[in-house]
Amino acid sequence: MLEVINLEVAYGAIRALSGISFTVPQGRIVALLGANGAGKSTTIRAIAGLVPVKSGRIVFQGEEIQGRPPHFINRRGIAVCPEGRRIFPNLTVLENLLLGGYGRKDKDSFRQDITGVFRIFPRLEERRHQRAGTLSGGEQQMLAIGRALMSRPRLLLLDEPSLGLAPLLVREVFHIIERLNQQGTTILLVEQNAFAALNIAHYAYILENGRLVLEGPGPELLADPHLREAYLGEGLDF
């Protein structure tokens, strides 16, 4: 569904990604793991059209999308749940969700999707008319995911959805990600929380300093001694 080929991204003189290639097959959860500064967010931002691609190609459903503006890429069916949630604090919960489905003309199913998001995240429904800035961190994360779902994405890019959440909430969020995937959404999951991500990912890539250094099926990497060594010591277990 998504194919990234020799992707290179630089911020001025700083090279953030030096030619990475990976694929996200339809219906899968693919995890992109790595330490802070490895280039995970840069990868997501490049796919979403937020940072210019220096070289390489990004192919989504047979169409090259590198160099296209973010709104174009969103309309093609890619939604992003950005790092740090980035909900609109001055808008209400409901307004955040409505904006997530910007440009949709199908009024009836649009309403249904809002109900659907409220079914997944009942706490959002209780707070629907509250300013999003007043939500707790966990609720904001749920809103960010719900907002991304409102465009009915074929591919959902999640950038560190567990960041800053209490362990219990992390588990809940990952369950929800798994459920969304079972309902048909393809997912690219970026995480520092490697073990939590590997538990639900079908396939995973490990990113280090802008290069992919390891890849394999989730359970296989979970058993990998090198990976355990690299990540267990950093307390990224859950």
């Binding site: 937020l50 973010p70 992003v80 980035r86 409505l98 904006l99 440009g103 465009s151």
Partner: peptide
């Protein structure tokens, strides 16, 4: 309206609004 919401959101976070499919 949706454009109105987008306008309020753009005032806060231009980049994220573009991720919603809005031509900023």
């Amino acid at each position: 309206t949706q454009v109105g919401r987008a306008m309020r959101a753009v005032a806060h976070d231009l980049e994220t609004v573009s991720l919603m499919g809005v031509n900023v």
